[in-house]
């Protein structure tokens, strides 16, 4: 089998499936079956970083829950409740992680096929640019604060409000500046043109492999719900 990313509709369908499955099941512990399948699904798309990092986090969760269940471990940090919460929501987390790791170009291609207005697509692209941009800006602000002696612990403790102001104000002013520069560059490059946006990425048709995955996810969800007990909302 070819190991390559699935099309965006498949990813969205997978997300709906896990969401419904987790929403309806009464057996939160059993979601491990879905999580394992979701990890396999990311592996099929060569998303090794997700498989590895979430896989090890999940293993740790599993060990802790095992220790709580069979060896009366009491959590000093975090709580047993959070472990259960993370455990139950894991399939959704894996599938979403894969979804947001989709190249923004492919998501925007999908949205423009759905005739989404250009401003909405630009908003989505900005969300994806947020993290690399902000990382650099926050680092720059902290560096200038250190340079000017504003991060000395004594200073931070004596004047916490002022310190907060020193971080927030340059960061916010810079944020507005970036928003302006992004907008000018978008407007100068035709962002205000009415009509549907084109796209560089994305095959318009789902392949056989995509359809197969859609069917498999649907089947997995149905089987899971049969085995995993549908929650009754009456009580």
């Amino acid at each position: 089998m070819r190991l390559e990313p699935f099309a965006v509709p498949v990813k969205l369908w997978a997300f709906c499936c896990v969401l419904i499955a987790v929403l309806l099941t009464r057996n939160g512990i059993l979601t491990w079956t879905l999580t394992l399948f979701a990890l396999a699904y990311t592996a099929m798309q060569r998303r090794w970083s997700i498989v590895l990092s979430y896989g090890s986090f999940y293993a740790l969760l599993g060990c802790l829950l095992y220790a709580i269940r069979f060896h009366q471990l009491k959590m000093a940090l975090f709580s047993e409740f959070h472990l259960i919460l993370f455990w139950t929501l894991s399939p959704i987390a894996v599938v979403s992680w894969d979804l947001i790791k989709t190249p923004p170009g492919e998501l925007s291609a999908f949205l423009s096929r759905m005739k989404t207005p250009t401003p909405v697509i630009l908003g989505l692209l900005v969300i994806f640019r947020f993290f690399p941009t902000m990382k650099a800006e926050v680092a720059a602000v902290i560096q200038s604060m250190r340079n000017r002696g504003l991060t000395a612990p004594a200073f931070l403790l004596r004047r916490p409000l002022e310190s907060l102001e020193f971080i927030l104000v340059p960061l916010l002013l810079r944020c507005l500046q970036i928003a302006d520069q992004l907008s000018v560059s978008a407007v100068a490059r035709g962002a205000e043109r009415p009509g549907t946006r084109g796209s560089y990425f994305g095959n318009t048709r789902l392949s056989g492999r995509d359809w197969a995955m859609i069917s498999i996810w649907s089947a997995v969800t149905v089987i899971f719900l049969i085995v995993g007990d549908v929650r009754s909302w009456s009580n």
């Binding site: 925007s108 423009s112 250009t118 978008a186 490059r189 035709g190 962002a191 043109r193 009509g195 549907t196 946006r197 084109g198 796209s199 560089y200 994305g202």
Partner: peptide
């Protein structure tokens, strides 16, 4: 920019 002008793929 080309995407904004709605050219075909």
């Amino acid at each position: 920019a080309c995407e904004n002008y709605g050219f075909d793929r």
